[in-house]
Design a protein around this nucleic acid. Structure first.
Lengths: 126, 126
DNA sequence: TTGAGTGTATTAAGAGAATTAATACACTTT
DNA sequence: AAAGTGTATTAATTCTCTTAATACACTCAA
């Protein structure tokens, strides 16, 4: 299902989270698909079950999985995890904007950046 | 000049950076004021000189201090450190906005947040 | 009901980065 | 030249993060 890179400095669970997230986002793992069990994936990757558990917990936190105790982990429906992604970004956006206001950054400078990065196109959805 | 809190989990140098930054931002330490020497402040706080050195280096990095080797550390002029603060925020703003675009967050949602947090007032400077 | 499967919680060991310290060097001024 | 200043290097230490070991709790099917 996935392969680990031991030259990678980052922790194992983080690599797993990243790869599974990609699989979900790109559609390779469809909604309500059952994920491999904590133990089986741990076996497959030659890793401690807790490491997988941690990765799954993170993915659940991020809205990509849901858990049924005693049964397994499942992929959240697409609309839901997409909503989660948007909300995460909106929260970050709010924080930066608040900080900008406190720093008295002129509104115009922000507007200029906004228009440059997010150009307004004709006939675009909301 | 400042006091340390040993119950605080954060590293000492970070506490020092934060407190000195506040003193500069609030105007208690004026532009071109000479800071205490690395050794004297270390003595005063019963801390290793390298710890102070590190704090000063950070403050220099952030644009609050400038150094003259053999002479001492001095507070940057106000216009300059203010400019640094603004640029830091603008960079963060750019990053979040780029991420938002990648996530396909609708432009309208960002605009709405923007207008709410940064209300446009009549007769305001740029 | 029991056994094999599942996720969960707790505790501890290990590794590695971050922090701080010790010490020597280089520059400026008097 | 001496006393004060910042700087660089190296090492010891602390501490968080990561991973592992192990026991517990729930679900389902035989």
């Amino acid at each position: 299902m996935i392969a680990l890179d031991y030259r990678d400095k980052r922790p194992i669970y983080e690599q797993i989270v990243e790869k599974l997230e990609k699989l979900i986002v790109c559609g390779a793992l469809e909604s309500n698909t059952r994920m491999p069990s904590v133990r089986s994936l741990a076996m497959e990757l030659s890793v401690n079950p807790n490491t997988i558990q941690r990765a799954y917990a993170q993915l659940e936190q991020d809205g990509y999985l849901y858990t049924i105790v005693g049964r397994g982990n499942y992929v959240t429906c697409e609309a839901e995890w997409k909503k989660g992604r948007v909300q995460t970004v909106l929260k970050e956006f709010t924080e930066v904007l608040t900080k900008a206001r406190e720093t008295r950054v002129p509104r115009g400078e922000l507007m200029a950046l906004f228009d440059r990065i997010y150009p307004e196109k004709e006939g675009e959805n909301t």
